[in-house]
Amino acid sequence: MFNNNDRESTAPVDVGETYEVTIEDIAREGDGIARVEGFVIFVPQTQVGDTVNIKITRVLRKFAFGEKEE
């Protein structure tokens, strides 16, 4: 049977991977929004214009969460 654990194989990011991203917008909750191949990643403690290295912590069907690497 098919088990996707809330994730589609089309997501261009994987949990544990690191990426350099630029924060493009701020979500209502205050997290920064970055994109990898158009896929939205929420990154707390960032501001618009920040270029940061992030580590992906959770991948869902339509978006992911990452944390800033120091």
Rank of each mutant, 00 (worst) to 15 (best):
I26H: 15
T22G: 15
V48T: 09
F39M: 03
Y19E: 07
P44I: 04
F63C: 13
T46H: 11
Q45R: 12
T51L: 14
T22F: 13
Q45K: 14
T18W: 02
G66K: 00
G30M: 07
Q45C: 11
E70L: 05
V40M: 02
T10A: 14
I23Y: 08
E8A: 08
F65P: 01
D6K: 10
R7F: 06
Q45G: 10
A34L: 02
V13D: 05
K68E: 12
I56N: 03
I41M: 05
E67G: 01
I33S: 04
G32T: 08
A34T: 05
F2S: 02
E37T: 13
I23M: 04
R35G: 08
I41N: 05
S9F: 07
E20F: 07
G16V: 00
Y19W: 14
A34E: 03
T18R: 06
F2I: 04
K62F: 15
A27Y: 07
V48M: 13
G32M: 09
I26F: 14
T46E: 12
V52M: 07
A34N: 08
I23T: 06
G32C: 11
E67R: 13
R58V: 07
R35C: 00
P12W: 05
E24G: 06
P44A: 09
Y19Q: 09
Y19M: 02
G38L: 11
E8N: 07
N3P: 06
G16Y: 03
T22R: 08
E69K: 12
F63D: 14
G32P: 10
G66T: 04
I23R: 10
S9D: 01
F2A: 12
I41C: 01
A34H: 06
Q47D: 15
P44C: 02
E17V: 12
V36R: 02
E8F: 04
N53P: 05
F63M: 15
N4Q: 09
R58F: 10
I26E: 14
G16I: 03
P12H: 06
T51D: 06
T51C: 05
E8I: 06
D31T: 14
A27N: 15
T51M: 11
I26W: 12
E8C: 06
E70N: 13
V13L: 02
I56T: 00
N53V: 07
N4S: 11
R28D: 14
D31W: 05
N5W: 13
